[in-house]
Structure formats: C-alpha cells, structure tokens
C-alpha cells in the first residue's frame, strides 16, 4: 500500500516537474527541471523493476542530455540570443486541446490493453541459456536483437559526423569544442585529478557487469564519457583534432567490431549468429569495443563540432 502511495506521489511529481520543465519561464530553469525530471523517471523505472533502463535513463536521459542542454543554454546566452515571446492564447488553447485529446487516446489505448498479456518474458527466459549472458536485457540487446543495437551504435556515429559537419569550414582539422580554461587549483581542476581513476573503474565495471547484471556498454560508456568530459573541463586533456586518425579509429572501432562479428557470423550459421558456446566471450568483446567507441562518441557529442582553428 505504501508502495502504491509512493508510486502515485512519484507519478504526480513527475508530471509536475515535467510541466515545470515545459512551462518554465526561464530556459535554464526549464533545463534544470528537465534534469530533475529525468532522475525522477529513473526512479520510476526502478519501481517498475527495470534497473537497466533506470541506469540508462539516469546516465543518458537525464545526465548526458542535461549536460548537452545546459551547454547549449550557456552558448546561446553567450551569443546573446533572446527568448521569443509565448504564443497567443487562442493558438495555445487549440494546441493544448489537441494534446489533451492525444493523451486521452493513448490513455484509452492503455485502458483497453489485455491485462494478462505476457509479452516475451517467458520466451527470453527460455532462450537465455543459449544467449551466453545472464542479464536478459543484455541478451536481448546484444544477442536476440543485436541487430537493433548494431544500427543504434551506427546512429551515434551518424550523429557525430553530423555534428562535426556543422563546424565552420575554417575550423576543420581543429579540435572539438571550445578550449576549456579551468582555474588552476579550482574545484574543477581538483575533481579532474581526483575523479578519473574512480570513474574509469566504475565505467569498466558497469560494462563488464552488464553481461549478467544490470548495466552494459551504453551505461558504462556514458560513465566513461562523463569522466573524460570532466577531465577535459578541468583542462587536463584536450580532444585530438577531428582529422586525427586514432580518434576516428576509436569512434569507429566498436561498430566496426560489432559488424565484423556479425558478418563473421555468416560463416558460423548466419548473420549476427553468436554460437552459444562462444556467445559470452563474443558479447563481452563487442561490449568492450562498443563501450570504448560509445564513450568517445558521447564525449565528442557533448564537446560539439570543432570550434578552434587547426594547428
């Protein structure tokens, strides 16, 4: 019962924070509300027993997305971009009405669902043995529906290329992001020295644990990316130039490895086929490669296109 009340309160809170994020007068405030909202949703996921999703939501949905948005707000402020005035009430009313209708329709659809539909839980459980991993979510992600994940990692690559291609032509060959000037000895600099080893450890663990417990390449990669970003913000490391061969190898390595395994599978029974006896090792290999590339890609996404001249 307390659980139910907690859930109801959580739901209301989530809705309220979401509203605040949407309607907030101040953009920065909205983004902050959005980060809070992400954390609350992560909480909701744990309430639903989906710890993997909760981790992903917290790390990616709230964390990285929040960082991206905060960074963007800061850039716009620096660029002196003003906020537009809100739309007229009439238009707002119509928009609101139609959104309410849409939400209602979704609600109706939910209400009409068969409460006993079992989904694929049982099927996954049956095949878990052959997947080579103990975490059913990882099994789905990297084996049963590994093809989705392959495409997904490539999506990250597309976006990175897209972000880079938004650079000014004159900065091509330069390093991503603006140069960070952390105060020497400031908080950031201190954390920058202190945190990386821990973060690295945590990240590698999350990746490694992902095969049997909640976690995995995405969550782990995000942590690694965050670590690198922190260090970079501290001014301790700088991104290599976008034209650097090793940088490009890093971002491509994971997906390429995945693809190589997938194609190699053709000779072992079919595209993306992971023979059960080697599945675990293969998945761990893939996860390792992916984590590296994901970490690099996510970090570079946050850093943005090169905005500094080439050497």
């Amino acid at each position: 019962m307390t659980g139910a009340i907690f859930d109801i309160v959580l739901c209301l809170l989530i809705l309220a924070v979401a509203l605040a994020a949407i309607l907030g007068r101040d953009l920065f405030g909205s983004v902050v509300f959005f980060i809070v909202y992400g954390l609350l949703v992560a909480l909701a996921w744990t309430r639903l027993g989906a710890v993997d999703v909760a981790l992903a939501e917290a790390a990616i949905g709230a964390g990285l997305t929040g960082v991206l948005l905060v960074g963007a707000v800061a850039r716009l402020r620096r660029g002196g971009v003003v906020e537009p005035t809100p739309p007229r009430p009439l238009a707002r009313g119509a928009q609101m009405g139609i959104c309410v209708l849409a939400a209602g329709l979704v609600g109706a659809a939910i209400a009409g669902l068969d409460p006993d539909a079992a989904g694929l839980t049982a099927t996954v459980a049956q095949n878990l043995e052959a997947s080579g991993v103990g975490n059913p979510v990882t099994a789905v992600l990297l084996n049963f529906r590994g093809y989705d994940t392959l495409l997904e990692t490539v999506v990250l690559l597309v976006v990175l290329i897209g972000v880079w291609s938004l650079a000014e032509d004159r900065y091509w060959g330069g390093r991503p992001g603006l140069r960070q000037h952390a105060k020497p000895g400031g908080v950031l600099a201190t954390y920058g020295r202190f945190l990386p080893p821990l973060g690295l450890l945590a990240g590698v663990y999350v990746v490694w644990a992902g095969t049997d417990q909640p976690g995995g390449a995405f969550q782990g990669g995000t942590i690694l990316a965050a670590v690198w970003l922190l260090v970079a913000m501290a001014g301790l490391v700088d991104a290599p130039p976008v034209t650097a061969r090793r940088l490009r190898l890093t971002i491509v390595a994971g997906p390429a490895l995945f693809l190589a395994v997938a194609v190699a599978g053709i000779f072992m029974g079919g595209f993306l086929h992971l023979p059960p006896e080697h599945a675990k090792q293969l998945i761990q290999t893939i996860e390792a490669g992916l984590a590296l590339s994901i970490a690099a890609t996510l970090a570079l996404l946050v850093a943005g296109p090169p905005q500094r001249g080439a050497r």
Partner: peptide, 10 residues
Amino acid sequence: AGPVLLGTAV
C-alpha cells in the same frame, strides 16, 4: 503544422 499533424493522427 504540428497541431495539424497531431490532429491527423488523432
């Protein structure tokens, strides 16, 4: 266009 689109879906 957005509301029109959403409206169409509805």
